[in-house]
Design a protein around this nucleic acid. Structure first.
Lengths: 246, 246
DNA sequence: CGCAGGATTGACTGTTGTCAAGCTTGGTGG
DNA sequence: CCACCAAGCTTGACAACAGTCAATCCTGCG
């Protein structure tokens, strides 16, 4: 990624603009937000369930996830975050974290104080709408994941997840051709779609055998977008991109 | 339910207050919202995926749900709504519905125009925060359901769902002793926790055999709250009730 | 009384999980 | 420079939870 894209404000603005039009004024207010940049190794906690954070986390580079553990220690990943996402924006209005947030890959994040965000929202009321909207899109993604995990088989789930990542990464300019980096393990992929690591391996092999994707190391290439969408029952409606508020 | 509880404003206020403290002024503004009351038979559509609604739906009596269908026609219920809930509050900021909303039981709902809600929020900015918070609690419930469906077995899932309903119905005064009405079919219960109707039957039998619940017709009684919570790995943290925003 | 929708039961199937072993690969240090 | 190690991936055998199908039973309602 180039230096410009690494600038916290640029990424956040790009992401917000993908779901909500911003004025020059509003963009300026976002650029002026004080951001503390932090680099993280893989699998590092960022915020834990039960915490009462006073700041939000903006993903700048790499991947993070929100997850919870069952009593038997099984992990469900509720969300994967791509650069530009604000995974714990909810903490602005929910005092206590109901899930944990951690880095998956090596990761750069920007920390923004709640107070600063609240001040920006007061001065620019449409920013409130923009941030609210972002949390609503997150909720929409949770709903789609519920459908994915609750009603679809492993093959379809995996195809769906890859379609979603392709679209979301494209929105922030992280897809080259049809390929993207996804530096997470098969176990983590499995925790995201509710299947075991062993079955992830088999499922990816099936997708490769069917000529839908290619994957070497952490690089995934989508060979046939249309067929992958079909296989994953993927309709990007739920991402609410570029929606006219008509 | 008595006449007072049936009044749209009373219920909504009670529900909002369970997650957010409201001033007398703010309560008054809610009472003044124009509400169109509608009665629905079971299984009637309220809003459909793809729609662009200009109003929100407040559940006054009975149960509704948000759901989507997979390509093979399997239905995932993403949320069950109890009286006081506003299932499609998201439509205030997301133009297009990403899931469908329908009645499950016979049902009374109140329809409130977006314009009226927006005006109330402009005049009483803390109402914006209250409504935003309600959508965030919904999102938190989606996350918990992801954990439930993705990582827990049928027995635990069912116990968890019953615990959640007990707590949410209690918050709006719809639990007598340890019992509540849940006038939905086993098939619908199954669609909510991602198991087949046949397996719902077996699972409820197991819960009854273990002395955790009793169910006759549509009436469910929790016989041992503590053991049911344990069985369902239930921790009400994610419902964000009565949270101090300290 | 008969019907329809829902619940239950039993038999069988199948997708996915678990376990354990072997393989690949990248990194480290002698 | 190469041997070794650890993490992650792959493979095969087997087990198990849950799905499907079909028959039967309830029960409320017309």
């Amino acid at each position: 990624m180039n230096a410009e894209a690494h600038r916290p404000d640029t990424l956040m603005i790009r992401k917000l603009q993908s779901i909500f039009p911003l004025s020059a004024d509003e963009r300026q207010a976002l650029r002026e937000l004080p951001v503390r940049v932090v680099h993280l190794e893989p699998d590092r906690p960022i915020v834990q369930i039960g915490d009462r954070p006073h700041q939000c986390c903006l993903v700048l580079d790499g991947f993070s996830c929100v997850f919870k553990l069952s009593y038997e220690g099984r992990r469900q990943i509720m969300a994967l975050h791509v650069p530009g996402d604000i995974p714990d924006l909810q903490s602005l209005h929910l005092a206590v974290m109901d899930s944990s947030l951690a880095s998956l890959s090596r990761c750069t994040v920007g920390l923004i104080q709640h107070d600063d965000l609240r001040r920006a929202c007061e001065r620019h009321p449409r920013l409130t709408a923009a941030f609210w909207r972002e949390t609503l899109v997150d909720a929409s993604i949770f709903r789609e994941w519920l459908l994915n995990i609750g009603q679809r088989n492993a093959y379809t789930r995996m195809a769906h997840l890859l379609c979603e990542l392709l679209v979301r990464l494209e929105a922030v300019g992280l897809v080259e051709g049809n390929a993207f980096e996804l530096p997470i393990t098969q176990e983590e992929l499995g925790d995201a779609i509710g299947i075991s690591a062993v079955h992830v391996s088999r499922t990816l092999q099936a997708l490769r055998a069917d000529g839908l994707v290619e994957s070497r190391k952490t690089r995934f290439a989508v060979l046939d977008r249309e067929r992958l969408k079909q296989a994953g029952e993927f309709d990007p409606l739920y991402l609410h991109l570029q929606e006219r508020t008509a």
